[in-house]
Amino acid sequence: MEKIINKTIEQETQLKELYKKWPDIKRFLQKLGCSKNDAEDVFQEALVIYIRKCEHPDFVLTVEPFFYVRSTCKLLWYNQSRKHSKQRTYSLETDVAQLDDDWFKKETQIRTIEQTLTKLGKQCQELLQLFYGLRLSMVDIASRVGLRNDKVAKVQKYRCLQKAKELAQDSDLGQDVELELQKP
């Protein structure tokens, strides 16, 4: 438990350091034709990917974190702009970054599910995040989210999970169809 908190603190300090580089990244992305609003989203997405990568036991950082984040930004922005143009021109270029790396492929799936999670209620979202993200105990979660006790929180957690599963499955189906359509 304490270990996860420590890790979180460590990650937060790292993020703080990296965020100081935001002006550099902004300039970099704008040069690649990214608008300012998109750029910050891309940057944040890259940071999420960075801290998730760092947790991966096989991941070895070969460059400075800043350069890693910057090249991730570039990759993400290329993907995104390609996707947009795909919708317009129906170009069949493959999404390189997503296909040649299993991790990225999985990460994209998780990201889709993460987006569907935003359709959940606020309390549900917070509860799931605290439990799976921060690994807080049910007792702590109950007091944070404002539920009577840990038992109630536990029941609520199952309810949220069930809902999330349904949502994810729905969007999953939708996504499959979309892929089918794109194939030919």
Binding site: K16, I110, T116, L117, Y132
Partner: peptide
């Protein structure tokens, strides 16, 4: 699927951390 949801929730937490930092 359930495992992916765990990961996704964790990811959401991490994203909120990034947004906090921002």
């Amino acid at each position: 699927l359930q495992q992916s949801i765990h990961e996704a929730a964790k990811r959401a937490f991490q994203r909120s951390m990034v947004q906090q930092t921002a």
